[in-house]
Amino acid sequence: MITGSMVALVTPMQTDGTIDWDSLANLIEFHIENDTAAIVIVGTTGESATLDMAEHEKVIQYTVEKSAKRIPIIAGTGGNSTSEAIHLTSAAKRVGADAALIVTPYYNKPSQEGLYQHFKAIAEAVDIPQILYNVPGRTACDLLPETVLRLVDIPNIVGIKEATGDLERARFLIDNVPSDFAVYSGDDATALELILMGGHGDISVTANVSPKAMASMCAAAATGNEELARRLNDSLMPLHKKLFVEANPVPVKWALHLMGLIPNGIRLPLVWLDEEFHEAVTTAMMESGII
């Protein structure tokens, strides 16, 4: 089981939207050096929705190769088509990813039975550890806890990224899933509380810009050092909040560019952070000791 601070990594791009492979390599090293527990590549923060299939597979392969087994790689391989999700998950397994993160199908609004059959089909088709990803604020599709409890019986479904920020739901899952099934936060602002109640880590946007502090916070929470964990989390809270002043990953890409880690590229329909939010993000970075 992977535990701790897992970065939901951005996909660096040039101004024209082409992938910046050198910056991606540098970000991988940045996270290895700063104790990030795993890299989640081509998820929501990685702009998976605007990468074509070939790019998606190439980013996974490149990340696996550059990491060279020094850090676990979790590949985002979900989609609103079950066959497409199976294709991407198979590609991730083929190039050596350690696990797949599979988002609920967006736009087409399946029933709970449809969601069960979707995830079951992917798990049965591809023998790789799979983490469910529930983020109804982005997908308009909510994977209910009762459906999760049906899915935990499938051997290679090993965890869930619960990004609702609903701590009552997190508590229910933690109390009712098997001990070897991981419950991860997908909401930085409530991740500390989820870990303190027995969750296994955070798949984090904030970790893009403050990996060391996020790693330390998650480790302190997991080992019961609540005082240290809260102190660290308080210092990170400005980032937890202000990195979402516009749709993720717009603010975090702007912050990484300000840090000199990536170029100022993003893909339509997303555009670069509006000037009215520059001060808020800069202030958060200063308050959190990033700049």
Rank of each mutant, 00 (worst) to 15 (best):
D153Q: 14
V148R: 07
D153H: 13
S185C: 07
L173E: 04
C141E: 10
S185A: 08
L167C: 08
D175P: 00
Y184L: 12
A125Q: 08
I174C: 12
L167R: 03
P178K: 15
V177M: 11
R171A: 15
T164F: 00
G165H: 00
I174G: 10
V126C: 06
P129V: 11
G137I: 09
K120D: 09
K161G: 09
V152D: 09
D153F: 08
V135W: 04
T164C: 11
A170G: 03
A125R: 03
F119T: 03
K120R: 14
H118Y: 10
E168N: 13
I131W: 12
C141Q: 07
Q117N: 12
A123H: 01
F119V: 03
A182D: 13
F172H: 12
H118W: 01
R138D: 11
T164V: 04
R169M: 15
F172L: 15
V148Y: 07
Q130E: 08
D180V: 06
E124I: 11
I154Y: 04
S179Q: 14
R169I: 09
T164G: 11
P145N: 13
R150K: 14
R150I: 06
V177T: 10
V183C: 08
Q117Y: 06
A163M: 02
T164L: 14
G159D: 15
S179H: 09
D127V: 08
D142A: 11
L151G: 02
V126L: 05
V135K: 06
V177L: 13
D180H: 12
N176R: 02
V152C: 13
E146K: 14
T139W: 05
N176H: 10
A170N: 03
F181V: 02
S179E: 15
A182R: 13
P178E: 15
L143A: 08
E168K: 14
L167A: 05
P129I: 12
L149G: 00
S185Y: 03
D175I: 04
E162A: 11
L173Y: 05
A182G: 05
L167Q: 08
I160E: 11
E146V: 09
P129C: 15
A170C: 09
C141P: 00
N134E: 08
D153W: 06
E124L: 15
F172N: 12
N134L: 04
D142N: 14
D166Y: 03
G137V: 11
I160H: 04
D166P: 03
D153S: 13
T147R: 05
L144W: 05
